[in-house]
Structure formats: C-alpha cells, structure tokens
Amino acid sequence: MERKDIWVYAECRNGQIAPVTLELLGEARRLAEGTEHSVAAVLIGGPVAHELFEHGADIVYHADLAEDFRTLSHTRVICDAVKTYQPLALLFGATALGRSLAPRVASRLQTGLSADCTDLKLLPGGTLVQTRPAFGGNLYASILTQGENVQIATVRPHVMRPLEKREGRWSEEVIALDVKLKDEDLAVEILARKPAASASRLDEADVVVTAGFGVQRYGLLDEARELARLLGGAFAATRKVVDAGKAAPEEQVGQTGVTVAPKLYVALGVSGAVQHIVGMQGAKKIVAVNLDPNAPIFRVADVGLRGDLRDILPELIRMIKEERADGAL
C-alpha cells in the first residue's frame, strides 16, 4: 500500500482530547494542503470524538481498548496500525506522555524520531523536514528521517495553531483497528491514578506569571499568584524559589523544570539565568519587571520595567481589579 496519510496520535487525558492533538491536526491539515495526503487521527479507547473531525481529521483510526493509558499497550496498537496502513508520517504532542510513548514506537518500528519540533515542512515527494531547538533554543536543527520507514516527530505544545472548527460537510471515516495485545503489554500495573496536586498545566497555559527570587525576597509570592489568577494564567517560579520550598517542583520553569511557550510570559523579579531563559524564550511576548536594570532577563524581554516590586505588584493588582469592577458596572 502506498504511504499517504499524515497521522496524529490522539492524546487523551481524563477522557478529553488534549489541546496539543487539535493543534497537530491543524498542522497536519496545513501540511496536507494541495497534496494527496489525508489527515488521520489515531485514537485508542473512548468513544470516537467528533472534535477530531471538526479540527481536521479525514479519518479516525480507532482502537477499542477499554483501559487507561499504558505505554506498552498503546505502542502495540500504534505499531500494528502503522504496519497495516503504512502512513507517511506520525505526529505526537511533545507532552510527557508523547515524549515517553513516541521513542518506544519509533524504536519498535526501527525508524527515526525527532523531539520537540517547532516547525514542520513537507517537501514534494513526502519528505518531512522536522525543525527543533537545541541547546535551549540557542540553535535550531532541521532533521530528516533516514530510510523509507514512517517519519515520526513529537511537536511542542502551543506552537502549532488548531483549525477553526470546520463548517459544512466532510467525510467522517472511522476505521476500526485490530487490538491484539500480548501479556507483556500489560506487564506494568497501574495501582493508582489521580490528578496531580498542582492542577494548572504550565505548558498549556496561555499566560504564565513567574516569580523569581526578587518576589520571594519581598514576600510577594501570594501577590504573584494573584496576578496569575487575574490574568487567567498559571503561576510559575524559578529554580531558586522552588529550591527554597516556596513553590512546587512542577511549577518550575527552566532547564530542569518545565519548558513553556505561552502567548504572554510575565517575569517578576526574575534575573534571567541561562537555565531559566532556555525554558521560556519560546514565549510570544515576554514582559519583565526587575529592580536591576542590567538583569539578563531584559535581553530576552519585549517589554521591561525597572522598579521595586513592593510598589509595582500591589498597584498593578489594584489597577486590574478596579478595571474589572468598572467593567462589571
């Protein structure tokens, strides 16, 4: 069979399709534009979600597997499907789940894998150019899969744009996948599963407000959290603040924490160590407030304000609250 489809692994969390899946369907649609390639989602478990079609899938390959995510069982289903239907490319979200599942799938299929791509291009002939940051975004590399096997990439959340919901008519083809699990696929036992304590997902937030040491020093962490809430965003912290026990490890942005690329990144009292910068320089807009005019954060920020957070932060919060109150009148 000819390799034609561009596949997107449909990542589910608590029965919901992950936002990155819809972003990838949008990107797959753009890649397929003007070509003969179809866009397909691979969905394991659950009912077939209509939104997969609405956001760009022509086909949903569906495996009826009534159990929670396990790397090995999903690897089995995906690899069997790839062998049967021979897609051109397979995209995963570069979430923790995607980044642990994709290497397993690629290695079993003996094909290449590029991690955390931020740009994809499809050349005539079907070669997928996979571009990704390295060295914390100081360098970009374009990567090609060697050989004739399926081209696999994980793609960073929040970089690709989902399609507006499609209007009108389109085919909604569902192809049922054979599920033939082996005992070894069930070797890892899930004893418990629950939402993590810090519920907000940094890597999926549109707005991230980060507290650096400058916030901690003046005891303004609650204010920083409040600002995050007021802006409809997620609270984050630098490593120094996390190490001091003032924020959770899951809230740490930077090299040894989470990498974020929100629409707006607000750095409060963050000096801008390289290890921090590499975790946030993908943000579309960076606003920084710092006492030190020479702080390295101002070298990556789009908008900067030098000043004392003890004056600025409470006033800023007051201002936003006042606007809201006015707006409500």
Binding site: S142, L144, V300, A301
Partner: peptide, 25 residues
C-alpha cells in the same frame, strides 16, 4: 542513526526590549 541533521541555524535575535518609563505601572 535513523535521523540526519540536514542543517543547523541560529534563530534571529529577539528585538531589543522596550523599557517603560520608571514608575509607569
């Protein structure tokens, strides 16, 4: 290897930071 780097490049530098006047909250 199953992948090959076809090219590397440095991203364009970010535009310079617009510093707001001090105290302009």
């Amino acid at each position: 290897s199953k992948t090959r780097v076809s090219r590397t490049f440095t991203p364009p530098p970010r535009p310079l930071c617009t510093m707001l006047p001090e105290g302009d909250i």
